[in-house]
C-alpha cells in the first residue's frame, strides 16, 4: 500500500495469496453456513471474508484489487441491511410479529431432504453488512495519504 521508490517483487506473497485466498473464502462460507449448528455465523463469516480481501489488498495494491473486484462496499452494506430488514418484514406476510423466524425440512431436488431456517436469510444480511462495513473502512483509510 505504501509507495516507495524501490520496486519490490512480491512474487511469493502473491502466489501464496492466490491459493490461500480461496481456502480462506471457503472457510468463511463454511463458518457462515455452519453457524446455526456449530460455532460461526454471519458475523464471523463476514469478517473472515473481508480478511481474505484484505489479504488481497496487502499482496497487490488498492487499484489492482479494485479492478479485480469492482465492488462498491457501501452498497454491499446497504444491501445487507435491506436483506435483514426484508427478512423481518417478510413475517408480516404470514400475520406474525416482526422478525418471527421459522424452520422446517424441505425437499430440494439435488440435495434431498434439507433442514432450512429462515433465520439464515437474516444472517445473510448480517454477513453482507459486515463485509461491506469492514471493507469500506479499510479501503477508505487505505486510499488516503
Amino acid at each position: 500500500m505504501k509507495k516507495t521508490g524501490l520496486k519490490t517483487n512480491d512474487l511469493i506473497l502473491q502466489t501464496i495469496t492466490k491459493i490461500v485466498l480461496f481456502i480462506v473464502i471457503i472457510f468463511s462460507f463454511h463458518l457462515f453456513f455452519a453457524g446455526h449448528n456449530a460455532p460461526g455465523g454471519g458475523f464471523i463469516g463476514g469478517l473472515i471474508t473481508s480478511g481474505a480481501i484484505v489479504l488481497l489488498l496487502i499482496a497487490f495494491d488498492v487499484k489492482t484489487v479494485k479492478s479485480i473486484l469492482p465492488i462498491n462496499y457501501v452498497k454491499v452494506a446497504a444491501f445487507g441491511l435491506l436483506i435483514a430488514i426484508l427478512s423481518g418484514i417478510g413475517s408480516f406476510l404470514f400475520g406474525v410479529p416482526f422478525l418471527s423466524h421459522t424452520h422446517g425440512h424441505v425437499h430440494i431436488p439435488l440435495l434431498g431432504d434439507t433442514h432450512l431456517a429462515t433465520a439464515v436469510i437474516f444472517d445473510l444480511g448480517v454477513y453482507f453488512v459486515v463485509v461491506g462495513v469492514t471493507m469500506t473502512i479499510i479501503q477508505t483509510i487505505g486510499e488516503t495519504e
Partner: peptide, 11 residues
C-alpha cells in the same frame, strides 16, 4: 432450528 444457541439467540 439450530444447535448453536448463541447464533440462534442472535438471529
Amino acid at each position: 432450528g439450530g444447535y448453536n444457541v448463541v447464533n440462534v439467540i442472535l438471529v
